[in-house]
Design a binder for these strands. Structure first.
Lengths: 310, 310
DNA sequence: CTGTTAGCGCCTTCAA
DNA sequence: TTGAAGGCGCTAACAG
């Protein structure tokens, strides 16, 4: 038993293939009754369109290529995939290993309608090579976590925290303090630190925050997951209880922080991927389904009211 | 300037399209000279085959669908992608979110030559639904980490460890002890534990290993990354130095353990993904490139000679 | 609103 | 060893 083709459906429905095509794609020029009937017949026959043929005839491929780095973030990818699939696009995955070879051979050539680069920073030459494919390209990854910080700050404030320290990684700027201020928090210069995006960076940040003579914060927000882990480890080693003595929030949500139990702002990375995909879809003229629905909330157990019990 | 099509190449080379097709695909029936010339012309024109047309005409799609779970392992995916791409196959990514909808609508229908399920356990019904696609399916994820344990055990033995404890997760069986024996280690019943695949599980394992009256091990091997983290945290909290007092090896290599600095057996997950893909390719009749080249070694800093300094 | 007619770019017979 | 012809399943003009 072969899979049903469009002409099979047409025959079964007693119409022409063109009508089936129009009906199924929601094209105008088909009566409601016909469209309904054809749709029903197609479903009953479990008809699945042959994209190859469709692409060949229509010129559009209904596929986008997603470029990721080896060891890239899975949630970035998942977010993009979700948005693309919801829009009816196939997702061709390209994991960049041998970059030179990739940009030389350009495997996505003639295979995709657009490209999304997720968490890979493209050089000018590489961007130029991709331009040869003659399809739109969207890059994601340079986005900043202001939104996530907003969520975290609001939550901490609602719990009564007033003394919140911020451990940023190198690519951040002072504008993050503004978010804290907007949330109703007082900022202090010594509570905004920069560290390397590593566990060691987090450990050092704790030293700075608690060794100086100043008042120690009741909560620490980190921009990077590894830093959050470092903060946690150092606080514990110093005999401080998390979250009783100090709360921790990671703006960077990943398997790592979840497993260790650090509270993180959820969905930030998924969002980025989805936004990139949506942006590309818009360029492609597709009215992309709303992405705003992504949940952004806190998960984890490293946050409590300041100085008290949970 | 449009992209060159096969007939463009044919015209430029002064041959028929059929000859170009045969030459480029390595089909027999073309003189060496012609093949070389055609290949050269195609390269010069930067010809890229239109897969849509190729699939339509040839019946094979040169694409396989990869099913992954949301939040699935990136390295499993990367391993599969590498193997598939090396074999000239496109990789269609399907992140399973709404499983019911996925198996009802079956988006890969008529789009792939085969399916690889990575880290998703398929129910009988789901497998049945996929069978309707009439393409081969390979699942990966149930593989066991005996190989990784072998690497870890050999390394620990070479450092002089004799007392090695094993913290397995629920899906493991006693056969792991055999690997330790083969590596020249003495096993003891109380040194083989089962725990939940969580940080808490690792912490509890340490309690059991060190609170009992028996001799404590000098090294702990865990099958799961989160467990390794738990072991590390608990040992530290108990005032034991890692790796001076106790070495830790995680058979499960991931961002998590690397970031925290736990030694892990590298490449295990990549390998699984690649093996699954290779297996599928074999089913598809493709002589898959050798995957054995994947490095399997130890990375990280949580291992030292027993009882001594590094 | 619906059907008919041509291809889309390639692979696969079949002849030469 | 090569070329010519047909068709894969669908969409996009055209007619009705």
């Amino acid at each position: 038993m072969e899979l049903a083709s469009m002409s099979d459906v047409a025959r079964a429905a007693g119409v022409s293939a063109a009508t089936v095509s129009r009906a199924l794609r929601g094209e105008p020029g088909v009566s409601d009754a016909t469209r309904r009937y054809v749709t029903e017949v197609a479903e009953r026959m479990r008809y699945a369109i042959a994209r190859d043929a469709s692409s060949l005839a229509g010129g559009r491929r209904y596929a986008v290529g997603v470029l990721t780095a080896e060891g890239g973030r899975g949630d970035l990818l998942a977010g993009a995939e979700a948005a693309l699939r919801d829009a009816g696009y196939d997702v061709l995955l390209y994991v960049l290993r041998d970059r030179a070879a990739f940009f030389e051979r350009l495997p996505p050539a003639r295979r995709v309608d657009g490209l999304v680069a997720l968490g890979v920073t493209l050089s000018a030459d590489e961007t130029g090579a991709l331009a040869g494919l003659d399809v739109p390209l969207v890059e994601a990854g340079q986005d900043d976590p202001h939104d996530a910080l907003r969520v975290a700050a609001d939550h901490l404030v609602s719990l009564g925290h007033r003394d919140v320290a911020l451990v940023l990684t190198e690519d951040a700027d002072e504008s993050y303090d503004d978010v804290l201020v907007a949330a109703g928090l007082a900022t202090r210069p010594e509570w905004t630190l920069w560290s390397s995006p590593t566990v060691a960076g987090g450990e050092q940040a704790v030293e700075v925050l608690f060794d100086g003579g100043g008042r120690p914060p009741t909560a620490i927000v980190t921009a990077h997951a590894a830093v959050a882990i470092g903060v946690l480890l150092r606080l514990r080693r110093d005999g401080r209880d998390v979250p009783r003595d100090v709360s921790i929030v990671s703006l960077d949500d990943c398997e790592l922080v979840r497993t260790v139990g650090v509270t993180a702002v959820e969905g930030a990375w998924r969002d980025r991927g989805a936004r990139a995909a949506t942006s590309l879809l818009t360029t492609l003229g597709v009215r992309a389904p709303d992405t705003a629905a992504t949940v952004r909330s806190l998960v984890g157990g490293s946050v409590a009211v300041p100085g008290g019990r949970v």
